[in-house]
């Protein structure tokens, strides 16, 4: 049952589905795995069956998904090419994905066990990744399980994990007490505060950011607002704190911060799995 990729309409427009070989998936409706519902609020809302297409024919329950989907696309050097259907991981986890010059083909079969569509896509992936030869990753994952979406996933486990020290390394202890027996409410808390989530040893909601009236910690506009706090003596200290939290820069004056921002704002991105930091992509990336 793990021989398939999930149907994703927009991804069919990606060149790996047409160049140089046309990929013609044969679609089937398969039962939505229980693990999708157990590990995400999005998964809970899925229909009874979802659309998939077979990449390979191994008749095994494992072997189709390898990488975590959360945080995959939060830097411009990575992309999900096809989420995989899986019975042991999460909705949206990655069957085929690329990070810089590495393309991960998560399916296990050798070519004779691939479908025609799977073989065509495999060949296209080889041709596609060639374009990225010599391009190292812009970021290395500080923790691939530390995206803000993962906070929701872990929150859903609050009543199922026996080793409480596991959760103590993920959430503040006070919250674990507050939400014991209320898994969905705990997950909803993290989902509702998604734009303000960051990590400082454990997941936290950025109350300083919220108090400053900044609605998100990951938009370019928010970074501009953080820099703007430096221009007022009353808010400058908070601005410095937030810029230290969310960037790797250390400029002496507001003018230098503003000049840095103005020169690079078209190339700024924010990565959760890269450490909850704003970074600048190289020109032309």
């Amino acid at each position: 049952m793990s021989d398939a990729a999930q149907f994703e309409p927009l991804q069919l427009e990606h060149e790996v589905f047409s160049k140089p070989f046309p990929v013609k998936p044969a679609y089937e409706m398969w039962p939505t795995p229980d693990n999708y519902r157990e590990t995400s609020l999005v998964g809970k809302a899925l229909p009874a069956k979802i659309k998939v297409w077979r990449v390979q024919n191994t008749a095994q329950n494992i072997g189709g998904v390898v990488s975590c989907g959360y945080g995959y696309s939060d830097s411009p050097d990575a992309e999900v090419l096809a989420p995989g259907y899986n019975l042991g991981k999460q909705y949206g986890d990655v069957g085929i994905g690329r990070h810089a010059s590495f393309l991960q083909w998560g399916f296990s079969a050798s070519p004779s066990q691939m479908t025609d569509a799977g073989r065509a896509l495999f060949l296209n992936c080889i041709c596609y990744v060639r374009k990225f030869d010599g391009k190292p990753p812009l970021i290395r994952a500080v923790n691939v399980y530390a995206s803000r979406e993962d906070a929701v996933r872990y929150a859903l486990l609050i009543d199922r994990v026996r080793d409480k020290s596991f959760l103590s390394n993920i959430f503040p202890d006070a919250q674990l007490t507050q939400y014991q027996g209320k898994a969905e409410a705990f997950a909803k808390f993290w989902q509702d505060n998604s734009e303000l989530v960051y990590r400082d040893k454990v997941y936290r909601v950025d109350e300083e950011l919220k108090a400053a009236g900044i609605a998100s910690n990951r938009t370019v506009a928010a970074l501009g607002q953080m820099i703007g706090l430096l221009n007022d003596e009353k808010t400058a200290e908070k601005g410095r704190l937030l810029l230290k939290r969310y960037t790797e820069e250390d400029f002496a004056t507001p003018g230098q911060w503003q000049a840095w921002f103005d020169a690079s704002k078209d190339r700024i991105y924010f990565s959760d799995v890269g450490g909850y930091k704003f970074r600048i992509a190289p020109a032309g990336y």
Binding site: H99, S101, F102, W105, R140
Partner: peptide, 23 residues
């Protein structure tokens, strides 16, 4: 940084070793 296709679990383990999102 050679153009590289990593396959299956073996490939995923290489991704993890290099701290890639493909891990």
């Amino acid at each position: 940084a050679h153009a590289t296709v990593t396959v299956g679990v073996a490939g995923g383990l290489i991704g993890s070793q290099l701290r890639l999102k493909t891990g």
